[in-house]
Design a protein around this nucleic acid. Structure first.
Lengths: 199, 199
DNA sequence: TTTGTTTATTAAACCAGTTTAATGGTTTTG
DNA sequence: CAAAACCATTAAACTGGTTTAATAAACAAA
């Protein structure tokens, strides 16, 4: 599926960066040149265990899921959908082989910036360095609220919250991946849904 | 308890900052002047629900636990012990009243920097801004591995891991707080310990 | 010292999830 | 279009935790 006139996704990326901190137009424009466009088909893998993670990514459109294989079971850590930054941070930061997968659940457009380019631009621009700090801070806060919910809410409450906060996921992602994300088996999630009358 | 010659905790704090990024001696020395020394007695509260969180903190010595009251139950999110940074980040960032507690489990020494001072120094020094980014990145990675364990390890495995990684906690913190941190009731943790032969 | 308070353990009943397996519906593909 | 692959649901047996309550042990205070 494609709109007749393609959206300017690079512009969205710029807007995203600016939402964290002001960056001079020239610096920002220059920064955009480092981003490489990548189209992923449904089911295509961006990162697999053993690989080094040399890029930071931005999902322009589509959905990437981040998971790990634990005793043959997929354990979903996160879904990255339209207009967010992501990477496999442990491997990216430590420059060790990944133990995770990053895979598209649907046709997905991402932009990728090389680690060396990203780091150079942080060094060259205090504004971009701040963008880096604030975006990392936001990522921390998101995952923090997740830990908070994991430690104080029931599975049922977390299911209901996800249904409310990210209803789109239930359309675009198979239920067994959502179950895994919620820390449940597909059977367990099905029982909860039954109990709630298919809420 | 006190050593005959008091340790220079401010020097430890400087070393901590430098472990993230180089900062010119003069800038760092100047930065230290913003830190206010706070001594907390056992059980003393640093932050309680309803309060605004105007500082970022550093535990020089002792232990602070970070928790929330959920239907009358303490839900422990983290223990901050010697030589780490912490604050109630959601309230600090959003400047809304806290919904958490930060409380000392023992006699604790903390250094506090006002948010306005911290932000000014980030603006004035690119080096400090980078320190901010990298320390936030480290915080993210720590909490990320926690989510990973919560979603793929059993309670028993998480108990054993905590025992291995932070054995000191079991000496200085009551077991029911550790149980809460692990997402268990005190009874549940006791059963696991029994099963493992008081490992 | 004794008394009161806090903490850890145990037991028993219970429950929200798991595991395994079978069924049926839906989507993909040759 | 038919065949194959994938996915959600259900049932039944099971399990690792919870809840509640009682007991014991450790600690603090007077």
């Amino acid at each position: 599926m494609k709109t007749s006139v393609e959206i300017d996704y690079l512009r969205n990326l710029q807007t995203k960066v600016l939402s964290y901190n002001h960056v001079d137009a020239e610096v920002l424009k220059n920064q955009m040149q480092f981003y490489e466009r990548l189209e992923l088909k449904k089911g295509e893998t961006l990162i697999a265990p053993g690989q080094f993670v040399k890029h930071f990514y931005y999902v322009a459109r589509g959905c990437i899921y981040y998971y790990k294989l634990e005793e043959g079971e997929q354990k979903v850590l996160e879904f990255y959908t339209d207009d967010v930054f992501f990477t496999d941070l442990p491997a990216y930061v430590k420059e060790t082989p990944s133990v995770h997968y990053l895979k598209a659940t649907e046709e997905t457009l991402v932009f990728a910036i090389k680690k060396s380019d990203a780091e150079n631009s942080f060094t060259q621009s205090h504004q971009l360095e701040r963008f880096g700090r604030l975006s990392m801070q936001e990522a921390f806060m998101k995952i923090f609220t997740r830990v908070e919910r994991l430690s104080s809410k029931s599975n049922e409450e977390r299911y209901l919250r996800l249904l409310e906060k990210r209803p789109d996921l239930f359309q675009r992602v198979p239920q067994y991946l959502i179950a895994s994300y919620l820390g449940l088996t597909p059977v367990g999630l099905s029982k909860i849904r039954k109990r709630l009358g298919r809420g």
